[in-house]
């Protein structure tokens, strides 16, 4: 498989993971540092099922995603009730715990040595199809009531609740969607690299996904995809810079976040029916961010 195709497949897998982060962190404002752990669950469970238990590949992927959803339900149910800043800590703890389990259950996972000998079943065509399907699913969610509810909860959870939205229930669904997409990306990645190790699924990976979302624009699906693509390809583009490329990479991100706080795309969406049909007038990318929203927490100002 040629270099471009390999980079392309890695990028496609990254985008699928980032789509989950887009919904969860970009739209709903929940910072999860455990998303990569779900990717790890997807990777390990599918690889184990195929290599050790000889389950057919498609079934193994489905089972791995279902497994991650089960774990996600438990984690989401227990952590989404707590305050949002603690949620980031709780998911961080969860992610590192998952990694510890991968390291410790040497008999099944190979521990720190990694799990080798996974057959290469993720073809470029499969990766492309998976990417299109994932983008389509997330796009549909984005433009349904769920997409609106995400934004509403992020902006003002109390106001959303008063309008009849069960914020906890909604967050749990979104968390599961993110977990499922991550696990799916993980399964694809295991059967592409043919090797998995716990070090691939640390919290820094989750953080990178969050950076990709903010880089492209937290409110824009186009931006999230663009962010994931650019930042996946960037390290490859910067290869000529040798050991300086990590510094350059960070500098570019810093500049973007500093000078375009709403991300490259703001709320702009690519649309096939007329270029910016979805962009509301007077709200150019990056501008028109919240201006006059009244201060929060004043519900009992009169108490």
């Amino acid at each position: 498989m040629s270099y471009f195709v390999t980079v392309g497949v890695f990028t496609a897998i990254t985008i699928i993971g980032v789509l989950g982060t887009f919904i969860l962190t970009g739209l709903t404002g929940l910072f999860s540092l455990g998303q990569a752990a779900f990717m790890g669950l997807g990777a390990y469970v599918s690889a184990l099922l195929v290599v050790t238990f000889h389950v057919p590949f498609p079934l193994a992927v489905v089972l791995a995603v279902l497994f991650a959803l089960g774990v996600g339900y438990f984690i989401g149910y227990t952590t989404l009730k707590i305050r949002q800043d603690f949620f980031a800590l709780a998911t961080f703890g969860f992610g590192e715990a998952v990694r510890a389990v991968m390291n410790e259950s040497v008999k099944w996972t190979g521990g720190a040595m990694g799990f080798a000998g996974v057959p290469q079943l993720t073809t470029p065509w499969l990766a492309a199809a998976a990417l299109i399907a994932a983008v389509w699913l997330v796009r549909n969610v984005r433009y349904s009531k769920f997409g609106r509810d995400c934004l509403a909860i992020r902006t003002d959870e109390l106001a959303a609740e008063v309008m009849g939205i069960n914020a906890f229930d909604h967050k749990l669904k979104v968390f599961l969607l993110g977990a499922g997409l991550s696990a799916f990306a993980g399964a694809l990645s295991a059967f592409f690299t043919t090797y998995v190790e716990p070090a691939m699924f640390g919290w820094t990976q989750s953080a990178v996904w969050i950076i990709m979302v903010f880089f492209g624009g937290r409110d824009s699906l186009t931006g999230a995809i663009f962010g994931a693509t650019t930042l996946s390809a960037l390290p490859e583009v910067l290869r000529f810079a040798s050991q300086w490329r990590v510094a350059i990479y960070c500098l570019i991100i810093l500049l973007i976040i500093n000078f375009r706080p709403a991300g490259l795309f703001g709320r702009w969406e690519l649309s096939f029916k007329g270029l910016s049909r979805r962009r509301p007038p007077g709200a150019g990318a990056g501008k028109g961010r919240r201006k006059a929203v009244a201060e929060k927490g004043g519900a009992d100002a009169d108490a």
Partner: peptide, 19 residues
């Protein structure tokens, strides 16, 4: 609300759709 709690990042129509 006394101090207006709109979803400022959303369009006016989407604000109402939330209901």
């Amino acid at each position: 609300f006394q101090n207006i709690r709109l979803f400022g990042d959303m369009s006016v129509l989407d604000n109402v759709k939330i209901a």
